[in-house]
Amino acid sequence: MPGARGLNRLDADGWAALVLLGLCAVFLSNLLRSEATGAYVTSATLPIAVVMVMAGLSALLLAGSVLRMRRAPPAGARRPGATRGLNWRVPALVAWLIAYVAALPWVGYLLASGGFLIGAGLLYGNRRWGVLLVSALVLPGLLLVFFEKVMIVLLPSASLWN
């Protein structure tokens, strides 16, 4: 299909603009359905105005991307940041971070943070187990003492073994 082929040729800016336009449509439909109140300027006026502006600017970004696509620059002329592939470690670290936060209420602050530090250190390429273990023990311990004893703020405790 020519449309799909055209989309494939869009650069990263074009894709970003399309995502933004989609988000604008979702938010605009939500705002238009809401019962806005207020004298002269309602509670929905500013959000709607901002979404419209954002949609207009995204359309401009998309237009720029389409123009660049038509000019079809040589592959070498493309910006490296926008076209290089995603390093697998990035989504892995995000997933590890989510797993860490999810584990906090279950296994407690010390264990979850220690585990996270070791895993994240390995993802960053640290292979010195001594350093990994020391950081996993010392940092969460120090933070726990600082917050719970000095600042009197409770950190998550392990509900799994009460």
Partner: peptide, 23 residues
Amino acid sequence: NPVLFPAVLVLGVTGIFVSTSSY
């Protein structure tokens, strides 16, 4: 960086939890 940034991430998570008490 392999020592610093995991520590920064733990500090960030801890800081937000302490400030807002909200997962």
